[in-house]
Design a protein around this nucleic acid. Structure first.
Lengths: 153, 153
DNA sequence: AAGGGCGAAAGTCAAAGAAAGTCAAATCAC
DNA sequence: GTGATTTGACTTTCTTTGACTTTCGCCCTT
């Protein structure tokens, strides 16, 4: 198979992530290195380093701008991964709380953290019509899980 | 990570504030020391040492001019109380995050907890069609603060 | 002793510079 | 022909720079 430039850039970033759980890169430098336009880096990031594939991309513009790519971790039994899946549907309060409780049982969240997260998705916090409520709830939980998988300071 | 000059100046002032609750600087000297134009000091002050982040900047021009940066240190009860007040209006992401950061600075939240709460009010978490993001955000934060006030007795 | 001028601060603001993001048209591979 | 890739014009965000303004203390004159 003939590799595209995007494939090669993907491989490069992938192998940089072998050692560490995240890397910081300069979009411009990378583009220069691979002799492509800067926006191609975005293309690679958008098509290959997605949540679904287990990555998170953060960035900052301007002066000391950067792009940070992190590889998400999961514990052995794929608990977080399937929790993430659950969050693709709206979640009612009971189900969501149970999910959060399980995270505490598995020592992914401390008691305190568990309580905090439950607070953020409580009925009072999401003071909205029920149908949109559940959607926001699962969205919030999804981001929390991603954060937990992103397990580096 | 590649730090900008502004980042470095910020760090310098921050660490000067570690020992004391305030510090007096000479804008010109600082600019000379960091090899930048004097107005960059203002830029750092305006973007980093804001009231929202818990700082006050006072200054005097002319002959014996100076810039004084102080870290606000009212007690945690008052802080949470006024934070709660703030949550009666919709909050944009920046303001909300700064509030949460201050909770960490005051050891009301651990670093981890701080990150978690920030995650729950992030743009991605509250990614809903309607533009009531800021309202939901302040609601969530309000419940978090109420929760913290319970713990904090 | 009062007022004015000078120079030494700090403040303001907008332009320039330095990243990264977006989006859609053009091209390529199958 | 369709979907994936490449390209580039345009946008947004953050930082750096510098010209111009304001304020203040001090000294000098009267």
């Amino acid at each position: 198979m003939n590799k595209s430039v995007s494939d090669i850039i993907e491989e490069f970033i992938m192998s940089s992530l072998d050692d560490d759980s995240f890397i910081e890169l300069s979009r411009n430098d990378l583009a220069k290195f691979f002799a492509c336009v800067p926006s191609q880096i975005n293309y690679v990031l958008n098509t290959r380093f997605t949540i679904n594939r287990g990555f998170v991309v953060e960035s900052q513009r301007g002066g000391a701008g950067y792009i940070k790519v992190s590889r998400l971790k999961d514990n052995d039994d794929n608990f977080l991964k399937s929790a993430l899946d659950l969050c693709n549907q709206p979640l009612n309060l009971t189900d969501a709380n149970q999910l959060i409780n399980q995270m505490m049982d598995r020592n992914i969240l401390s008691k305190n953290e568990c309580e905090l997260v439950k607070t953020t998705i409580s009925v009072k916090a999401l003071n909205n019509p029920i149908n949109i409520d559940n959607t926001i709830r699962s969205n919030i939980l999804k981001q929390v899980i991603i954060k937990l998988m992103q397990n580096h300071k």
